[in-house]
Simulated assay, not measured.
Amino acid sequence: MNFGKALEELKQGNCVARKGWNGKGIFIKLKKGESLNTPNNRFDEVMTHDFIYIDTTGLHTNNPDAPMDRVPWLASQTDMLADDWVVVE
């Protein structure tokens, strides 16, 4: 699927990845922003806008130095123009 459809899947709560990504077990996901008015939320700890992050915690690799993280993600032009996006279960 193309990037536009991948974004729609993210908005529906699904995880997506590119078939062409080097490394299995990597995906991106949308994190919904939170309200500042939620009880127990501290103003300096709340992300109020939605953002996309990449999750490499399930990366299948023999490299012991490979990062296993969840960090904010920005699409490259190659990612935005790719047609190899898939929904990840």
Rank of each mutant, 00 (worst) to 15 (best):
P72S: 14
T61F: 04
V88T: 11
K31L: 04
N40R: 11
N40I: 13
G13P: 04
V88S: 09
L7K: 15
G58V: 01
M68A: 03
M80F: 02
D65E: 10
G20T: 15
K29F: 04
V16G: 08
N14G: 01
N14D: 04
A6C: 03
V46Q: 06
S35N: 04
D55L: 11
K24F: 06
S35Q: 02
E8A: 08
E9W: 06
Q12H: 15
R42P: 00
P64R: 01
G33N: 10
L7Y: 05
D84E: 02
K32F: 08
G20R: 14
G4L: 06
P72H: 08
W85G: 00
D44I: 01
T78N: 13
D55R: 04
E45G: 00
I52P: 06
H60N: 10
D44Q: 03
D69H: 11
W73D: 08
G4Q: 12
R42A: 03
I54K: 04
A82E: 09
N37I: 01
D79C: 06
L7G: 07
E45N: 01
R70S: 09
I28V: 12
V86S: 08
P67W: 08
E89V: 14
K19T: 11
L59V: 12
S76Y: 09
Y53W: 10
T56K: 02
I28R: 01
G4P: 05
M68D: 03
T38S: 13
N2Y: 00
L7Q: 15
I26K: 02
R42C: 02
H60P: 01
G23T: 14
N37K: 04
P64V: 03
N22V: 07
D84T: 01
N63Y: 00
Y53V: 10
N22K: 13
P72I: 13
E45Y: 00
C15P: 00
I52A: 10
K5I: 02
S35V: 02
I54Y: 03
N22P: 04
L30G: 03
V88A: 12
V86I: 15
M47C: 07
P39C: 05
D44E: 04
T38H: 09
D55K: 09
K11G: 11
L81C: 12
D84Q: 03
L59D: 12
D83E: 07
P72E: 14
F43A: 07
A66I: 02
G4S: 12
E34G: 14
V87M: 09
I28G: 02
K24P: 08
E34Y: 07
I28F: 03
W21C: 00
A82F: 09
L59M: 13
V16Q: 08
K19R: 15
A75I: 06
V86W: 07
P39D: 06
